[in-house]
Amino acid sequence: MAELTLFDQQRDRLWGIAYRITGSVADADDAVQEAWLRWQGLPDGEAEDPRAYLTTVISRICYDQLGSARSRREAYVGPWLPEPVISADDPEDRVTLDESVGMAMLTVLERLTPAERTAFILHDLFAVPFPEIAEVVGRTPDSVRQLASRARRRVRAEAPRRTVDRGEHRRAVDAFLRAITDGDFDGLLEILDPDVVWRSDGGGKVAAARLPVLGNEKVARFAQRLVRGFDPATMQALVREVNGAPGVVFADPVGAQGAVFAFTVHGGRITEIDAVINPDKLRHLDLGRAGA
């Protein structure tokens, strides 16, 4: 049996790879569990380089998952957004945002082929050599190099402009939260970019816009309408770390309702809002303890 402590040392890294490839907390959890089972059954000394071996295993699992998920996502009702990752941590010494796991970045990655996405994530984000990636996607190293290059160009072209300053981002989120909880329509218009884009993922389970909403007035109305669906007596609206940047969690512990907002900020204004309200994508969050 392979040394289990070696796996535990790699667990967080493996989960990070899995989440970026799949965009799903549940799929990432399943992939790590499957990788652990395979590692557990490996004879001692079989893997000369445990880190490389486990990276290949988790990537192959997720690459297969991503291929089978594409057909489901094509039939998905409305925009498909990643399952949000929430944290209450906001270290004072963290001054920039984690773009690699941001909702805007993951949304762009959804437009890549599974092979392009896997090659880009492994090489550009985790510094995995091309020969090792070739084993994952079943291509030659030169082909993988081209896949990563195409993906990189597309990401650079399609990723939205955004601030890397955490303070600027947080100020915009705070202003949005104040305006939305106070019912201040003019305040919303002020903090929303005139060309702001709103995407809401209800998955056909709850009411949501099935196409992106454009423009600050329309987005402000959609946001207010969504928040009015919560009971003001029990609703909690809190700034939390959402996929590596300050975002907002709306939670009703009594009604078990929830919504998670992720933001893109540029020039002091909000340019994109990704609202996850599909209850299936919020099951991994303890909304009853959102204020804890």
Rank of each mutant, 00 (worst) to 15 (best):
M1P: 14
A2R: 08
G16M: 07
G16T: 12
R20K: 14
G23E: 09
V25P: 10
A26H: 13
A26F: 10
A31F: 01
Q33K: 14
A35W: 04
W36R: 15
L37C: 03
D49G: 07
R51Y: 06
R51W: 08
T56A: 08
S59F: 07
S68I: 09
S68W: 12
W80T: 11
P82F: 09
E83C: 04
S87Q: 08
D93P: 01
D93R: 13
L97P: 02
D98T: 11
E99L: 14
G102F: 05
M103R: 02
M105A: 14
L106E: 08
T113H: 04
P114R: 10
L122T: 06
H123F: 11
F130I: 02
F130N: 03
G138Q: 06
R139I: 02
L147V: 06
R150F: 12
R150I: 04
R150C: 07
R154E: 14
V155Y: 09
A157L: 11
T163W: 10
R166K: 10
H169I: 07
H169R: 04
R170F: 10
D174T: 09
L177H: 02
I180M: 05
D182V: 00
D184K: 10
D186L: 14
D193R: 01
D193V: 02
D195G: 05
R199L: 15
D201A: 07
G202I: 06
G202T: 09
G202H: 08
G215I: 12
V219N: 01
R221P: 00
A223K: 01
Q224K: 01
R225V: 11
V227N: 04
F230Y: 13
F230T: 03
D231G: 10
D231T: 10
M235V: 15
V239E: 15
G244E: 06
G244F: 06
A245I: 01
G247H: 05
V248F: 02
V248P: 00
A251C: 05
D252I: 07
D252Q: 11
P253L: 08
V254F: 05
G258K: 08
A259L: 10
T264C: 09
T264R: 11
H266Y: 15
T271F: 10
T271G: 08
A275R: 13
N278S: 11
D280W: 08
K281L: 13
D286I: 04
